[in-house]
Design a protein around this nucleic acid. Structure first.
Lengths: 340, 340
DNA sequence: CTGTTAGCGCATTCAA
DNA sequence: TTGAATGCGCTAACAG
């Protein structure tokens, strides 16, 4: 069966060659009109563009990418889009990369039965020009695979010594210590912890708990919550603390949504915030300042992380920056609001 | 320069042919081990798998997709990942499609200077096996482009007569009427509206306002908010209503985040909810039942939408279902909580 | 169960 | 400024 018969039924049927035939030029001229228009005379361009519109041509980037080894695709791995904390980072990253001509697609990860290695392989099989990790990669195999390739990788919302490639964010260990210290500075000597037990969260928790103990603060209880984070779980965990009958004067929450749930549990029991129990969270999600009481929380420069990640990507992709040379620690800051 | 020299520096350098050479078989045998293992003897499979591990081969789906016309890729268009309402839908859809061997990637849309048509073209250029739209497509060109192709398309969170292909969700017009009627049923005769002015929101708003007026209810004020939706904007809008000195007894909000902001504005002014002002929202976001007061809202079966969308996709992709034959209206229901 | 041949749609390289 | 030849890495179709 020759091309053309049955053509409405096929998959990606209209090709660059069809455009070339319609416009009366060679295929490579069409390619140039799309990728490098300056090299084609204005009149020819118009002919070609008319032909493209006429037959409804849409480029096939599988074919283009195959031969050029460039996909103009950036894949961002996120644990789940329910994680509000990454929204601004991703928004900004996407805008910057779009402007530079890259398509950004998000891949939700690690909530199913695929291993990290398999997930990274699946991502790599699309041959993206770059990969952004918002979530830490613990599998040795998966890290080795990424190290063995040239695909630029930016890890965001993290900062540590030996990144796969580029990294921009903050140290979770430093943050854990700072959360503990903020409670101590407010004068609390009996503190509870409510923590979502994901990988980075555990880092913060360990650092936080250790710092409290080192400073002689009593840790009355550690409530661990399985991801995904939710307000309801925060509420339940706070209820536990209340029911334990050894209510601390301060509670550190691993996440603002947890804090929100904790506030609602305390309200329901008629316990005053912050006079009877003070709360400190993390993330400064968009409405943290707008609920009542407004949430005291540690804020990171989510938007800046996205912007800088995009700069790092472009440096690696287009400015010849070497692997492993781009690292930035942006830190964090305490927003002292009504719950503390 | 022959392949192999400098091989660590190349892009997707290890090929299926390399695996074949290492394992001492033909390329097609390697391909079969990966795509159709039953057709290969167990012993050969092991040889091949060992070779794959040895040289760190990762398949190139650009090449595979190019020849097979199958990408095993589903692209989901979302307005922004900040839209919490789609989370459950996408989560479920992703799980189902992953289990069926498809990769689901999300594309954030329409917050930049690209037209709908260009965005759809960019998506199609990756040759996904299917496309999911969580956001309505108004551009005639963009719709025509999708109609002209065979790529299955499922529109979710919507229901109307003439979908591009498959559709599962609910009617925004019906919902607008139902929101109005819920206020009327509670006995309110003076109602304010706070609405995020996106495309579907406008449909709901028009239907809602018309129904109120038809029933002789006074619409004291319509506050329109530009997307993206945020709690802060909801608070501001409610503050306007308060300052206008013609405070209604009921306020219908286009979104639960708006309701949350409205509650906080009312609290700040010492106005009791719901006795002085009642609030009804839409979306039933995850914490709607867990904040205080809990939010009265219209709920849609977000999870079911995802599950059914996946079924529709698989029916179109693998079960020969015809374009335009899959349509489902799941409706919505009122969750009468503490703000009304 | 395994291999051979051919070509998917496009951009690179060189030539005109 | 435009074109011809070539091959990217892989799988469909057929043969053995």
């Amino acid at each position: 069966m020759s091309r053309g018969e049955n053509s409405e039924m096929a998959w990606g049927n209209v090709t660059l060659a069809d455009v070339a035939r319609t416009a009366g030029v060679s295929p490579i001229t069409v390619s140039r009109v799309l990728n490098d228009p300056d090299k084609v005379k204005a009149k020819t361009q118009e002919k070609v563009k008319a032909a493209i519109r006429e037959i409804g041509y849409v480029p096939n980037m599988l074919a283009g990418g195959l031969v050029s080894s460039k996909s103009k695709l950036v894949i961002v791995l996120v644990p789940s889009i329910a994680h509000r904390v990454f929204v601004n980072t991703i928004q900004n990253l996407t805008e910057q990369m779009s402007s530079a001509g890259y398509q950004v697609l998000l891949s939700q990860t690690f909530f199913e039965n695929q291993s990290e290695l398999e997930q990274i392989e699946t991502i790599l099989s699309r041959r993206p020009d770059a990969i952004v990790l918002t979530t830490p990669l613990f599998s040795v195999d998966a890290r080795a695979l990424l190290r063995a390739r040239n695909t630029p990788v930016v890890e965001v919302w993290d900062y540590y010594d030996d990144p796969i490639d580029a990294v921009v964010g903050f140290s979770h260990t430093e943050l854990g210590v700072a959360m503990a210290q903020a409670m101590i500075d407010k004068g609390h000597r009996r503190v509870g912890l409510i923590w979502v037990d994901d990988q980075r969260g555990s880092l913060r928790l360990a650092a936080c708990e250790q710092h409290l103990l080192e400073r002689g603060v009593e840790v009355t209880s550690v409530q661990r919550i399985n991801p995904p984070v939710s307000v309801g779980e925060g509420r339940k965990a706070m209820q536990y603390l209340i029911d334990e009958d050894n209510i601390p004067t301060g509670v550190i929450c691993s996440n603002d949504l947890i804090t929100l749930g904790a506030v609602s549990a305390l309200k329901a029991s008629g316990i005053a915030v912050p006079s009877r129990v003070a709360l400190i969270g993390f993330g400064d999600i968009d409405f943290a300042a707008h609920v009542s009481p407004s949430l005291s929380t540690f804020q990171v420069q989510s938007t800046d992380i996205g912007k800088i990640a995009a700069q790092m990507l472009l440096a690696r992709l287009e400015k010849g920056a070497q692997r492993g040379t781009l690292k930035q620690n942006l830190g964090f800051q305490f927003e002292d609001r009504e719950t503390s």
